[in-house]
Simulated assay, not measured.
Amino acid sequence: MDAAGSGSFVVGWGTLTLINAGLAQAKGRSGLNWWLLSILLGPIATLLIVVMAPLSREA
């Protein structure tokens, strides 16, 4: 892989981590924790966020 391809991979992976953090927050979970987890797991973390039920908000 050349340098240009590697750079676009990093940008794509970084974008995915931010999307995952937003999805996690929308489901009542910690955006920071899921952002960190997404750095390691990437698309697997996305799948986990999507299939997990939202946390109930207690008033």
Results as ranks from 00 to 15, higher is better:
residue 43 P to H: 07
residue 2 D to R: 06
residue 32 L to G: 10
residue 23 L to T: 09
residue 1 M to E: 14
residue 28 G to H: 02
residue 36 L to H: 03
residue 23 L to Y: 05
residue 22 G to F: 10
residue 43 P to T: 13
residue 24 A to G: 11
residue 15 T to W: 02
residue 17 T to E: 05
residue 14 G to K: 05
residue 35 W to Q: 03
residue 59 A to R: 01
residue 31 G to D: 11
residue 9 F to A: 15
residue 26 A to D: 12
residue 37 L to N: 05
residue 23 L to V: 10
residue 18 L to G: 09
residue 17 T to M: 01
residue 40 L to E: 05
residue 14 G to T: 15
residue 41 L to N: 04
residue 42 G to R: 05
residue 37 L to R: 04
residue 24 A to V: 15
residue 34 W to A: 06
residue 1 M to H: 11
residue 54 P to I: 04
residue 10 V to E: 15
residue 22 G to N: 09
residue 23 L to S: 02
residue 30 S to I: 08
residue 22 G to S: 08
residue 19 I to H: 01
residue 44 I to S: 09
residue 48 L to S: 05
residue 5 G to Q: 08
residue 57 R to W: 06
residue 38 S to D: 02
residue 15 T to N: 04
residue 52 M to Y: 08
residue 34 W to N: 08
residue 19 I to E: 01
residue 29 R to Q: 04
residue 49 I to K: 00
residue 10 V to Q: 14
residue 59 A to L: 03
residue 50 V to I: 09
residue 33 N to P: 08
residue 17 T to C: 01
residue 3 A to K: 03
residue 50 V to A: 13
residue 57 R to Q: 06
residue 22 G to L: 04
residue 58 E to P: 13
residue 35 W to L: 07
residue 38 S to W: 00
residue 23 L to P: 06
residue 40 L to D: 04
residue 10 V to C: 15
residue 39 I to N: 06
residue 4 A to M: 13
residue 52 M to H: 10
residue 8 S to F: 09
residue 27 K to Y: 06
residue 5 G to E: 10
residue 27 K to T: 07
residue 7 G to N: 11
residue 3 A to T: 03
residue 30 S to N: 06
residue 40 L to Q: 06
residue 21 A to P: 10
residue 2 D to G: 13
residue 15 T to Y: 02
residue 2 D to Q: 08
residue 19 I to V: 15
residue 18 L to I: 15
residue 7 G to W: 07
residue 14 G to A: 14
residue 37 L to I: 04
residue 34 W to C: 07
residue 34 W to F: 08
residue 47 L to Q: 11
residue 10 V to H: 14
residue 44 I to N: 09
residue 36 L to Q: 01
residue 42 G to P: 00
residue 5 G to F: 00
residue 48 L to I: 13
residue 22 G to I: 12
residue 56 S to E: 06
residue 35 W to P: 05
residue 26 A to W: 09
residue 23 L to C: 04
residue 44 I to C: 07
residue 45 A to D: 09
residue 43 P to F: 03
residue 45 A to P: 03
residue 57 R to N: 11
residue 31 G to C: 08
residue 59 A to W: 00
residue 38 S to T: 13
residue 16 L to N: 13
residue 10 V to W: 10
residue 50 V to L: 12
residue 32 L to K: 10
residue 40 L to F: 00
residue 4 A to H: 13
residue 5 G to A: 07
residue 38 S to Y: 03
residue 56 S to C: 05
residue 32 L to I: 14
residue 48 L to F: 09
residue 53 A to W: 11
residue 27 K to G: 05
residue 34 W to H: 11
residue 44 I to M: 01
residue 14 G to Q: 12
residue 30 S to F: 00
residue 4 A to L: 10
residue 6 S to N: 11
residue 5 G to P: 10
residue 54 P to Y: 01
residue 29 R to I: 14
residue 17 T to W: 00
residue 50 V to D: 12
residue 35 W to S: 07
residue 20 N to P: 07
residue 29 R to K: 06
residue 9 F to Q: 15
residue 49 I to N: 00
